[in-house]
């Protein structure tokens, strides 16, 4: 019975000590609730000014970053004509293992691009070529 009383007293002392320490350390924060001598509060910010500062300026910054990131892509895209028929400046270059550098202008002009050819392999089967396509 006496042990329980001592335990309760000890616990209440610990709790009261913690509460007192918290009240002492938080007193500077509550000191802001009253004005001091020489205190000069500023004018209140209007709602439109607050929106401009905290919404308008971040939006402006984001738009500027997006513009700077996207502008190079627009410039590169401008190299292709409106119909997508931009041409390579210069004659075609063909390189293979047998010849160092040769022109393929004649062979490429003669190539029929209207249909997809199939290459006949030794087995006699018409097998479409493989590979992939890409743009940049």
């Amino acid at each position: 019975m006496a042990a329980n009383i001592r335990t309760c007293v000890r616990a209440s002392l610990v709790v009261s000590g913690i509460l007192a320490a918290m009240a002492l350390t938080s007193s500077p924060a509550s000191a802001d609730t009253h004005r001091d001598d020489g205190d000069q509060p500023g004018t209140l910010m209007s709602a439109s000014t607050a929106v401009l500062l905290f919404v308008g300026i971040p939006l402006l910054v984001a738009a500027t970053v997006w513009l700077l990131a996207s502008a190079p892509g627009w410039t590169r895209g401008g190299r292709v004509g409106a119909t997508g028929t931009a041409t390579f400046a210069g004659d075609p270059l063909v390189v293979d293992g047998s010849t160092d550098v040769s022109s393929a202008a004649a062979s490429s002009a003669a190539a029929d691009s209207s249909s997809t050819p199939a290459i006949e392999v030794a087995t006699g089967l018409d097998v479409p070529p493989g590979g992939t396509s890409a743009t940049w």
Binding site: T85, L93, S113, S114, I119, P129
Partner: peptide, 19 residues
């Protein structure tokens, strides 16, 4: 084989070059 030039015919032209 490397070809650098106009490919107005797209994929079909490339396959024709191979053929």
């Amino acid at each position: 084989r490397l070809y650098v030039g106009e490919l107005s015919g797209g994929r079909a032209q490339a396959e024709a070059l191979l053929a």
